[in-house]
Amino acid sequence: MLRSQFEEDLQNLHDKFENMGNDVNTAISNSVRAFIDHDKSLAKDVIESDSEINAQELGLEKKSFEMIALQQPVTTDLRRIVTIMKASSDLERMGDHAVSIAKATIRLKGNKRVLSIEEEISDMATHVMGMVSSVLDAYIHTDSDKAIKIAQSDRVTNDYFKSIYRHSIKAMEQDTETVIVGADYLQVAGYLERIGDYVCNICEWIIYLRTGKISELAATMHEDE
């Protein structure tokens, strides 16, 4: 009886983590769309919805501590709870970066835009959102091989960041009217790059869940570049 209650609690934790992940991916998608479309109303929605993401993380953390204290799980069960606690913290930080992108949208004041760079930011965001969706799927299936591939794909995120950085600096040098918007492009690309790093963190937790070993995927990816 106790075991079946524990399994039910664990499944509930698992489902709530997945819901939080989907909400974070929606926040990232909306924040980038708001930035590209200069949609301040959508940007405000992203900022307001962050309190719900924060509450989800706190709820997961509280329930996780409660299950550890009351059920005293061991081995795989304990690893699953620890993984949810750690990975939900990474999701919460991704949500914070979505808020930062939304705030950059609200700061924009009809400055001169560089559409080719905005297109690149949109492509980068699509890639990063694909990483977030994939890592949630890898978590659900405890797929460590997929987690490694997702972490490797963060090289593409870093390439986008370098390219946007290069093009933004060039635009600012060639036309001083793009200096303010160029600085925003650099910031937004930086937030997306950090989201990619947090996805790599979750990949590491998936491998921990499967093997019980902590691996440094993000560090390895950067060393290989």
Rank of each mutant, 00 (worst) to 15 (best):
R33H: 13
R33S: 06
F35P: 12
I36C: 09
I36M: 09
I36Q: 10
K40Y: 13
K40A: 05
K40P: 02
S41N: 04
K44C: 07
V46F: 11
S49D: 09
D50C: 14
S51M: 15
E52I: 15
E52Y: 07
I53G: 03
I53R: 08
I53H: 01
I53D: 00
I53W: 01
A55H: 03
Q56C: 04
Q56V: 01
Q56G: 02
E57P: 08
E57C: 03
E57G: 02
G59R: 04
G59W: 00
G59V: 01
L60N: 00
L60I: 00
K62H: 06
K62R: 09
K62P: 00
S64I: 00
E66K: 03
E66W: 01
M67H: 01
M67P: 05
A69C: 11
L70C: 12
Q71H: 08
P73K: 06
T75L: 07
T75N: 01
T75G: 06
T75K: 05
D77M: 04
R80I: 03
R80Q: 09
R80E: 03
I81W: 00
I81Y: 00
V82C: 07
V82G: 01
T83N: 00
I84W: 06
I84F: 06
I84G: 02
M85A: 00
A87S: 15
S88W: 00
D90V: 00
E92S: 08
R93T: 07
M94R: 02
M94G: 03
G95R: 04
G95Y: 02
G95F: 04
D96I: 06
H97P: 01
V99E: 06
S100E: 07
I101D: 09
I101Y: 12
A102F: 14
K103W: 05
A104D: 11
T105E: 06
T105R: 05
R107C: 13
L108R: 12
K109H: 11
G110R: 04
N111G: 05
N111D: 15
K112D: 08
L115S: 15
L115Y: 13
S116L: 13
I117A: 15
E118S: 15
E118L: 09
E118T: 10
I121L: 07
I121H: 10
I121Q: 10
S122P: 12
S122H: 07
S122R: 13
D123G: 15
D123S: 15
D123Q: 14
M124Q: 04
A125S: 14
A125G: 13
A125H: 12
A125Q: 12
